[in-house]
């Protein structure tokens, strides 16, 4: 696994040009109905997701992600859950001691499609929105700036720290540190790998605190942003519609039950 990348794909599409908050609202208008208000509808939410993938022109990366991350997970879950979930009378398939019932298969199918909706909608958000763009838009709307600092600076520190970890692993291996043989030796090699990495990065904390303090990090004044993110009327209307749809789905749930 590589910590270096975020999922963002820099192309120009209607979805890329939406305001980040609108895209976040789109994500939650998929997840809330799928999990809380209208769970029976979850399989059908795949249709808007596929449409969004093509509007966002990220189909190649999305299907790549689907094959590598989502499909193995949900296939495993579907098979395991239909085999082992208790309950249900209608036996469809009998494999020795395991019974696959229609009820367990149905519930596995719904769970898996909800997971699919959740992971896919977040994936589309991340494929079409750069994390720092999302954070600066949220900061402009009143999220404390410290949150944006934490997210963005973590995304910057991670590749550096990973490079440092690779260097330390290589250096300790060249001194004969055992990272491949018996279990006890691998546990023993954890300390010489973790120690230099952690202490090295903790030492920098103090300097960085002084540096950002000198740049007015804790100042209470409103800060201006170098990069303005547009929020046209279309976005505001779309967000309004999404809120109404989500509320409608909850009222429908109460009305049905």
């Amino acid at each position: 696994m590589n910590l270096n990348r975020s999922f963002f794909v820099p192309v120009n599409s209607p979805l890329h040009n939406l305001n980040p908050l609108t895209k976040l609202a789109l994500v939650f208008s998929m997840i809330l109905p799928a999990f809380l208000s209208l769970p029976q509808l979850a399989p059908f939410l795949a249709i808007p997701i596929l449409i969004a993938v093509f509007i966002g022109r990220v189909q190649k990366q999305y299907f790549n992600l689907l094959l590598k991350l989502v499909l193995p997970t949900i296939l495993f879950m579907f098979v395991m859950q239909s085999l082992f979930l208790p309950g249900g009378e209608t036996v469809i398939l009998n494999l020795g001691i395991f019974d696959v019932t229609r009820e367990s298969m149905q519930s596995a199918f719904y769970t898996v499609s909800r997971i699919f909706v959740m992971i896919s909608s977040f994936a589309i958000l991340l494929l079409t929105t750069h994390p720092s763009e999302l954070m600066s838009d949220l900061t402009r709307r009143g999220l404390p700036g410290q949150f944006a600092y934490v997210i963005i600076s973590t995304l910057q520190i991670l590749p550096q720290m990973q490079a440092k970890a690779q260097t330390i692993i290589a250096a300790q291996r060249s001194r004969g540190l055992d990272t491949e043989s018996s279990f006890r030796k691998r546990i023993g090699s954890l300390v010489p790998l973790v120690g230099p990495l952690v202490f090295g990065s903790l030492v920098e904390v103090e300097e960085r605190a002084i540096a950002i303090e000198a740049r007015g990090f804790t100042s209470k004044r409103v800060k201006t942003s170098l990069h303005e993110i547009p929020d046209p009327a279309f976005d505001k209307i779309l967000r309004g519609i999404l809120v109404i749809l989500v509320i409608a789905s909850f009222t429908l749930n109460l009305w049905l039950s």
Partner: peptide
Amino acid sequence: WVLIPVAIAI
């Protein structure tokens, strides 16, 4: 606030 990103990276 400065320790938190380092801790997440750790």
